[in-house]
Amino acid sequence: MEICLKQVGVLLQKREILRDINLNLEKQQMTFLLGLNGAGKSTLIKAIMGLLPISAGNIYYNGRQLKDLSIKERARQIAYIPQNSELWIYEKVKDFILTGSTPYLKTFEIPKSEWKQRREEAMAEFQIEHLRDAYMDAISGGEKKLAYLARARVQDADWMILDEPTAALDYKRQHEFMNQLKRYSEKEKKGILLSVHDPNLALKYADYVVILDKKTVKACIDRRENDFENKLMEVLRQIYGDKLKLIEMKGFYSLDWREE
C-alpha cells in the first residue's frame, strides 16, 4: 500500500505546524523522518495516522482518501507505535500484544484461539516469550518496544509507523531494534515509517529519507539514487550546520560532529 500526501497542511491550536507537504511513500521500504526538534515530525506522523485533522490538502492510502476510510479500515492498514505509551494500569504483556487483533474483530467479538496463536508467533519472532506474564509497566523500555512490535505484527498492517522508537533505548538496543525492524520489514514485506533524531541511523538503515525543516519537506533522498550518502550529508548540513561531516572508511559511511 502506498501512502501519498498532497499539499498537506496541519494546524494545531491555530498555529501552522506543517505546510505544503508532498510525499510519496512506497511500500516495502524503510522511510526515515529526520528534522530538528519542533520541525513537525510527530505532527506529520499523527496526521498520516489520522490522529490529527489536516487543514489543507489530502492524504491517500493506496489512492483512497484517508477521510473516506473508516477508523477500522485505517487500523488495518497502519500499525502505530507511539513514542510514549499513556500510562495505563494492570496489563500483562501477552494481553497487550493480543489487542493487535482489535481492528479485525466484529463489533462484539473477543479474540479467540486463532488470534492467540498469532500472538504466540509474534512473541516468538521478537523473542519475548519469557515476558508473557510480566506487566507492561514492569518491563524495560527496550522490552516494551519489542512488545509494541509484536502487537504490530499481530495487527499485520501493511505499514508500521513509529514515533521516535529509539529515543529511550541504549546504544546497543537502538541498533538491535533497527535490525529487528529491518528484518521484519523485509520478511513480511511491510512499509515502515519512523522518525529519529540520530542521522546516523538513517544513514545506516534507511531506504528513503525525508527531511523536515521550516514546516515543510526540505528534501527526500532515495538510497537507490547515486551518491546517497553525500546527498544526505549535503541536506543535513543545511539544517544541522557545518559541523556535520561525512566520514568514509573502506566503503562504510558515518556522520560525525566535528568542532574544528
Binding site: 487500523a75 495505563w88 495487527q155
Partner: peptide, 17 residues
C-alpha cells in the same frame, strides 16, 4: 473487549480502530 483496549489511551485505541 473494546473497553479494555480503551484503557490503553485514546491515541493507541484509535490506532487500533
Amino acid at each position: 473487549w473494546k473497553l479494555k483496549v480503551l484503557t490503553m489511551g485514546d491515541e493507541e485505541a484509535k490506532s487500533l480502530g
